[in-house]
Structures are given as C-alpha cells and as structure tokens.
Write a protein that binds this DNA or RNA. Structure first.
Lengths: 231, 231
DNA sequence: TGTTAATTATGACATATATCACAATTGAAT
DNA sequence: ATTCAATTGTGATATATGTCATAATTAACA
C-alpha cells in the first residue's frame, strides 16, 4: 500500500533535494511553477541512457536502480536511488544526454524540473551552486571508489560489499528485503548470476548471512566486513 | 631540454585552465596574487591521495599520471594530465582530501591556487561556476565510460583502447613515445604486466602496431578500433 | 667501458570466473 | 488447483587471466 501525496508546493515539501533549502522564497516559487510530477510502476523506465537530458529528476518516494547499458546488452548497476535524490547525470552539462538509465524498483514518485530553470538558479544563487557542486562531487567520489572495488576485489569481496551497501546505505538494518534478482545482483557486482547464487550459498554455509530469494539477514557482520575489505 | 618560463601574471597566461577566461580583471588579479608555482622532476609526486586538499593545482606544462592507490599496493591509472588541466579531484568538495595521486611523468610545471580563492570566485562569478560544473561533469562522464570499459571489455579491447587514448587524446599522432612502462600500462588497463607484453606482441604479429619499449606506431587503426569496440 | 639494476620478454602453470545445460522452485494467471 | 513463465539453484566444463620462475634486453652509472 502506498499513497502518492501529491506535492502542493515546493515550499512545504520535505521529500525533495536538500539543496533546495538554499533557495529564497522567490526562487523556490520559480522552481515550483516549472515542475511536473509523475509516478512509475515497478520496472518502468524513468531515465533512458542516451536520450536528451532536458530535465533534472528528483525522487520523492520509492526505490530505483541506476544503471549503465554496456556492450552486448550487459548492464552495470551503479547504485540504488531513493527519495531526496537528484537524478540527472554528468552528461547534462557536457553533451545534454543522460549517461545512465534509471528504472523503478518499487512504485516511484518523481518530480521533473526543466534544466534551464536549474541553471538559472545556479547562476543566481551561489549557495545553491555550491550545493550543486558538492552533489556532483559526492557522486564522482563514490564512482571512484566503486571503480577500485570492481577492478581490484574478487567476487566474494564485491558481493559482500553489495550486501553491506543494502544494509548500511539503503535499508539501515541487518535484515532487509532483497529488491534485486540474482541476475541484477550480478550486474551490480560485475559477475555472472550463477556466481552470485554460488557465493550466496557459501556465505550461508559459513553462517555469515541467511538468505532467501527475496530477503537477506546478516548474521555475522564482522566476517562480512573482513571479506569486503580483504577483497 | 625545457624552459620553465615562469608566469608573470595570470592575465597574460595561456597555459592555465580555459575557465579562467570567464574572470573579470579584478577576479583574475585576486587569483594572481594567491598563486604559487612549482616544478617537478619525472616520478615526483604532485598530489598524494588522502592528503588534505587545500589547493587547486593547474598543470602549465609537462605530462603527469593520475592514479588511485588501491588494495595491496595495486594502483589504477585513471588518465594522463597535460597542460591546461585542473587537478583537484571531487574529494575537495566533500571531505577535503585528494581522492587520487598525481605523479610527474616528464618535467612538470604547476600552479597552486588556494581553494578558498577558487570558492570565492565560484560564488562571485556564475559563468566561472558553470565552467567549473562543466569540468567536474566532463571528468565524471569519462569515469563512467572508463568504468564500463574496465568491467565489460576483455584484455585486448582494454589495451587497444589505451593505445588509441594515447594516440588520439594525448599525442595526436599515430606514432608516439610510450611514456608508461609495461607495468604502468597494466595499471591503466587493469591487467598484469605480463599480459600487456603478450598482447602487444600479438598486435605486432598481426601488423596492427609496431612497438618498442619506449615507442608505439599504429599501423592499422581500423583494426585497433574494432578490437577496442568489440571488447 | 664494464657492472649492476631495472625492465621487458617468454613459457609453464594455477586459479578465478564465465558459460552451458538442465533441474528445482517460485510466482502469476488462468 | 493447473499451467506456464520466470527465477533460482547445481554440476561439468571452458576460458580468460594472473602468478611464478627465469632468461634476454635495455638503461643507469661509476
């Protein structure tokens, strides 16, 4: 069960991007006049890689997966996105194309704001610009880290890290719903789905986790952390 | 033989970051008053990953390698940097730490500008801020691309791509000096140095390139492109 | 110019990981 | 409940790639 709770005005909205707090009442009103809400059902595509990026998209509720479509139809899931997230991608400021795709995992509510408006506000409000730079930088920093992880760790480490990512960054609990299929877990950790299945099995045998197809409980966080760090 | 040609003033300097063109005379003077030049010999470290990032660093001349220090002493070379490049890394705006290291390959001349000054100018000049965002975005976009390359291509494709990177982006010629060792080429393409040697040998046998330890000539660009794209 | 250290090169082998084929299970839709 | 499609799970095998040992070059330098 979900309720969409259509937003009345940006002024009273607590589910958008935290950087909007830097805006004046007039700037916020400008944004508010130029925004459009949309909802997406699970598996629906919110952003399509390669398409023209005219809008900044903010997740208001729900979960989505951010992924790159690579060679020979192979995807690479970069991260999950939840509410208060700006989705746009660096391509916006370079070639006006989205450089990744985003698909809804749960029911998703999103707010579309034309990028001309965002650019206006960036020019007019240095605090907002700084926040924007910080957001870009934060994402780039995580990407640098992910790069190291994917290239230097082996499968066990990469999978352990993914499980800790769900636990720590998304669900904030040692027990959580596994919203990705084994196939998708593979796309996130750059391994074949069969390898995902096998290693999850090993983790279970060693009493590190308890897993069903749609849920995970972390039983031995210390061990999982060591595996994640030792590679 | 090189000459350092110490810069007299930013106002007349053509070797710095193109985004400085957006600055007014006064802003440029502020920058000029707060800058420090330094030179580095080959293999000297210009930026050390993890150290506090108080300065933006601009390459005025020479070549440097940008790399992350990963697990178990294994490096990952992200790219080469030449003149007109801003070196700082996204960490600057997040945790005030450099997230990568930079080491001189040739003799390097660099300009250090305190980040407080840069931040001042970002706040005061929307055009500069926009240019800054564009620079950050451009780098993030390349990183996204590199991520796909490293995770989805196999060795031949990754090495072919690296050779094309040198030819197209750095030396603008089919024949160029190989400034990296086989070991470093491996750090750039995420493969063992022995594999680099072997595959360079294969490329030579197929008359795709002619290579010596310190030089490369591309003989069959079409074939190299196909290998790079087909993975 | 000879001597050492570093790099490049080569072959044998080990191992991580993907692929393929197929069985078991689950979930959705009649 | 029954059927179908999708996902999960398992074993056998193939392949890409790393590791180790060691030789051949090349570069550094006293």
């Amino acid at each position: 069960m979900y309720t969409d709770n259509k937003i009345i005005s940006c002024e009273f909205c607590s589910r958008c991007w935290s950087n909007f707090k830097t805006l004046s009442a007039e700037e916020l009103e400008l944004v508010n006049k130029n925004r459009y809400e949309a909802t997406f059902k699970p598996s629906e595509i919110i952003i399509k890689q390669g398409s023209p990026s005219s809008n900044a998209i903010f997740l208001l509720s729900g979960l989505a997966k951010v992924y790159m479509e690579g060679y020979a139809g192979k995807n690479l899931i970069l991260n999950l996105a939840e509410s208060k997230t700006l989705l746009a991608g660096p391509g916006v400021h370079v070639n006006s194309r989205y450089c990744y795709s985003v698909a809804a995992i749960t029911h998703v509510q999103a707010c579309f704001i034309n990028f001309d408006v965002i650019r206006n506000v960036i020019s007019a409000n240095p605090g907002f610009a700084a926040g924007f730079i910080e957001d870009l930088s934060d994402k780039a920093l995580r990407l640098h880290q992910k790069m190291l992880n994917l290239t230097q760790k082996k499968m066990h480490g990469r999978l352990a890290e993914a499980l800790l990512y769900f636990s720590d960054s998304i669900f904030h609990s040692d027990e959580f719903e596994m919203v990705l299929s084994r196939q998708e877990l593979g796309e996130m950790t750059n391994m074949a789905k069969e390898s995902v299945v096998r290693i999850i099995g090993e983790f279970e045998n060693e009493n590190i986790i308890h897993a069903t197809p749609r849920s995970v409980r972390i039983l031995n966080r210390e061990k999982l952390l060591v595996i994640s760090e030792k590679g």
